[in-house]
């Protein structure tokens, strides 16, 4: 392996002290080590955060839930509070990767997960994200797995996370600790659109690290659903996925959160679709209308036009299942 310096701080301050622009934090390493071996990431120093604690899931006084950076995907998915109050997050986590990967992968690592774009992973090919200014190979290449939403002339790489899609739907903040202090960034703003600088993926400074993700307080009376569509039944990144959180007032949509995965350059909140649904009757027609709105700005590429339909189908089915669950609850009570 290419050599790098490994530091193992036991305090956050030390971790930040050590960390610079050419460095990387390591939690579970499931993504970083893979990319280091491919020569895609070449950190000079790797700062191990495993001595820093940050492994608690806590309910805050205001009802929000704080998740430490090091909480593993497996522990988060199986946490009683998460399964009870944020089932969409648990489902999303369990739909991703494999048991062994989920045991290693961390919450902050998943937030920071890099794209699976094959051209990003192939150092012999141009890629603006890996090598700014070199060009985008996917735009005129094999782009079946690429984004139809949020892309740019510079990059159409998909954000691969399932967890982040659920978090985008739930809403929350990413807590950052830096040498100049702490700040909280809304989850929806933490991941950046590629625009002209796909190499800049996060609202995160070189001297900062993620310490927690805080989820908004759970919505009372909501039903939620994470639906992931892919070629095979398991162990594959999404072609399209949808996290839906729905509340009804009778048959009317009183609130809805929709986020999409597999189709966009970042965990994608479908705000127009949500706005159109509120106050509407919870019918397939309404859901289909919302699904169309969610993809109104879609820019399909040569190999992925089907993702528009697939993403719409994911939205409709997610919402129908959530509505059905709510109605079943209503019938029982």
């Amino acid at each position: 392996m290419r050599t790098f310096e490994l530091t193992r701080p036991t305090a956050i301050g030390d971790a930040l002290e050590h960390h610079g622009a050419r460095d990387a934090f390591i939690g579970g390493g499931t993504n970083l080590i893979d990319l280091v071996k491919l020569g895609v990431m070449r950190p000079e120093q790797v700062v191990d955060i495993n001595g820093l604690g940050l492994d608690d899931i806590e309910t805050l006084d205001d009802g929000r839930v704080s998740i430490g950076a090091r909480v593993s995907n497996a522990d988060l998915a199986r946490d009683d509070r998460i399964m009870r109050d944020y089932p969409v997050l648990s489902q999303a986590l369990l739909s991703g990767a494999s048991t062994s990967l989920r045991n290693m992968a961390t919450t902050a690592g998943n937030v920071m997960q890099r794209t699976r774009c094959p051209y990003f992973r192939d150092t012999a090919m141009p890629c603006n994200k890996r090598s700014p200014g070199s060009g985008c190979s996917a735009l005129t290449g094999i782009n079946r797995n690429h984004a139809v939403l949020g892309g740019s002339e510079a990059c159409i790489a998909v954000h691969p996370s399932d967890m982040c899609v659920a978090m985008a739907a739930i809403g929350g903040t990413v807590v950052l600790e830096g040498r100049k202090g702490q700040r909280e960034v809304p989850f929806a703003d933490f991941h950046l659109l590629p625009e002209r600088h796909p190499e800049k993926e996060h609202d995160l400074h070189d001297d900062e690290m993620i310490t927690h993700v805080i989820l908004d307080a759970p919505q009372a009376g909501a039903a939620s659903n994470y639906l992931k569509l892919r070629d095979r039944a398991s162990y594959e990144f999404a072609l399209a996925s949808c996290a839906a959180i729905l509340t009804l007032d009778g048959d009317t949509v009183s609130s809805v959160r929709l986020a999409l995965g597999g189709v966009a350059t970042k965990p994608w909140r479908a705000l127009d679709a949500e706005a159109a649904l509120v106050g509407m009757e919870a019918t397939t027609d309404s859901f289909e209308h919302a699904a169309v709105l969610a993809f109104q700005g879609a820019v399909p590429q040569s190999g992925n036009a089907f993702k528009v339909t697939l993403g719409q189908q994911a939205i409709v089915r997610s919402l129908r299942d959530a509505a059905r669950a709510l109605k079943a609850q209503g019938d029982r009570s």
Binding site: P118, A124, M125, G141, I142, N145, R232, A233, Y235
Partner: peptide
């Protein structure tokens, strides 16, 4: 364009898994 293999790994070259 390049005749270079694009999905040269077990994540993107799909074979059936147990769930299939």
């Amino acid at each position: 364009r390049t005749a270079r293999v694009v999905n040269n790994n077990y994540a993107e070259y799909l074979v059936p898994v147990h769930a299939d």
